[in-house]
Amino acid sequence: MSLEPFGKITSRTVVLPQENIDTDQIIPARFLTTTTREGLGKAAFYDWRYDEGGRPKNSSIFNGVNPATHRILVAGSNFGCGSSREHAPWALLDFGFRVVISSDIADIFKSNALKNGLLPVTVDKETHQRLLASPGAEASVDLETQTVRIDGGGEARFSIEPFARRCLLDGVDPLGRILGQMAEIEKYEEARA
């Protein structure tokens, strides 16, 4: 199985400045009864976007967001905390996001995002503040050089786990690597039996 290789994304940002945006916000649990990965974009931030009757909220920060031109989500610290639901990155990707930037991203969310081609980018506090202060700004995220460039000034490097980076750049699914180590797995099992 291969994913779309991740290169460089240049896009406008959507800014959610709140800290601790948990996966129940990203996709409420009532949407988790699905048995597929597809079509969850409509459920992304559902309760932020729609009222009880399913009508778009006037106050929603997502109003006017064009998924084709707003592919970078900038969020407050500890983004993606809470549940391990992979439906969260599936929903964000299906909505149109390809990058999430914060000062601090929760471990399980980060791991899930990387496996689906949603790039989790952790930046220093100063860059984070600059991004938070300029919603809708154009930014470029380059995975090859591991840099974020903000239109109108500011550039920062980010670190990322090297194996996950390689998989994203090449569009490769990590399961292939594990299957390629089956001899080692069998040897381990025999030694412990």
């Binding site: 391990s84 992979e86 399980i108 791991s111 496996k115 689906n116 594990i178 299957l179 089956m182 797995i185």
Partner: peptide
Amino acid sequence: GIGTTEVGHVLAT
């Protein structure tokens, strides 16, 4: 805890 992709990894390997 793990996500669903990793659930697949463990099921398979």
